[in-house]
Design a protein around this nucleic acid. Structure first.
Lengths: 117, 117
DNA sequence: TAAGTAGATTGATGCCCGTCGATTTGGAGC
DNA sequence: GCTCCAAATCGACGGGCATCAATCTACTTA
């Protein structure tokens, strides 16, 4: 007497039976995904993405006072965005007197970039 | 008599004077930034990032019932994440009877990937 | 020392997000 | 018809986000 005639659909599923082909697993593990998602989230705002674009293409370091007039947002909001980018490990800053210079941390986007391509 | 002795600091700034070197502009324009930020935002969640990872590496199409047991979230939450990825133009789905098969849209990540590298 | 300035912080507001349980939708099969 | 099932949608909750005006913090300069 065949065993699986005694199994309910729920029991079948509990026993590992699937609706279709064998299950596939993500190559990217949780910690890796957490790191990359954090970077992606920080880039998930058009202003922050443009900020990174400016900072990346400017070889030297860029003063905040240069960034403010580029975007139609207030100075505190820009500061907030720069803080988010710093918290995500994408940029860092250096103060010289009154001015703050921001720059993209080398290889900060490397892992995400590699995964995407 | 030098003109800028008559200008207050505020007037100087209003006239375009800067604290430092000439201003740099983002190469990425607003619409481009909006599109890429939308994709990045969708990838800004570890579960969604792993979902895309699974879907990308599975050549064929993957059934939702295969995805549910991979993550420690409820079925409605997984459905919500898939909906977000679809809204961002990253994945699409095809229904066959009871089951729904999801797949990554070719070139959906191309623009962001190119910008990142 | 006092005034001016660049940038960060605070507090408030309105909106969106991730999550869940419960329900709904629509196809499969008896 | 009716039941069972996969997947989507709904409604609610708690938390985080983008934004601003106002304030604070250091530093510079007169």
């Amino acid at each position: 007497m065949p065993v699986d005639l005694e199994l309910s659909p729920k029991q079948k599923r509990a026993a590992g039976e699937r609706c279709c082909e064998p299950v596939v697993y993500p190559d990217v593990q949780r910690e890796e995904a957490l790191r990359m998602a954090e970077v992606a989230k920080a880039l998930g705002d058009p202003i922050r993405l443009q900020l990174v674009d400016v900072l990346r293409k400017h070889a030297g370091k860029v003063c905040v006072c240069e960034l403010v007039p580029l975007f139609d947002i207030s100075q505190p909001t820009l500061s907030h965005h720069l803080g988010k980018l710093r918290a995500a490990g994408i940029v860092d800053s250096e103060r010289k007197g009154l001015w703050a210079y921001y720059y993209v941390i080398p290889d900060a986007l490397k892992e995400l970039s590699a995964w995407l391509s």
